[in-house]
């Protein structure tokens, strides 16, 4: 399994990560090695088998439509790097 430099940079972009030049080579090597190993799933006898997304039987879980007390806004905002007037603050996105 060959992974190109362009591919790893594309993946890093999708994942919102910057990679330094020396990191690109390390991650490329590791990714290739791990994918070569992981490729074994393509040899598994899985013809006709369904996909399992989770181990418990898939079902919808409902709860009662009741008003319950939610978490305190000020407490939640205490972990925010920047907040103003009860809201999370981010740089301007519209000119």
């Amino acid at each position: 399994m060959q992974v190109s430099k362009e591919e790893i940079l594309h993946i890093a972009k999708l994942a919102n990560l910057n990679l330094k030049e020396e990191e690109v080579d390390t991650y490329m090597g590791h990714l290739e090695e791990i994918l070569n190993f992981a490729n074994i799933v393509n040899k598994a006898p899985i013809d006709g088998l369904e996909e399992t997304i989770g181990v418990n039987e898939a079902y919808n879980v409902f709860r009662k439509d009741e008003i319950i007390e939610s978490l305190n806004r000020d407490e939640l905002l205490q972990n925010a790097p920047e907040a103003q007037e009860g809201m999370f603050k981010i740089p301007k996105v519209i000119n």
Binding site: I11, A15, L17
Partner: peptide, 29 residues
């Protein structure tokens, strides 16, 4: 970061069927 990159790779278009979907079938196995 290594695991995020691997995870993003196996979910990305073009590799989803070869890895992620297969893995979910192996899970049944």
């Amino acid at each position: 970061k290594r695991r995020i990159i691997l995870g993003t790779y196996v979910l990305s278009s073009g590799y989803y069927d070869a890895y992620y979907k297969k893995a979910q079938q192996v899970r049944t196995l």
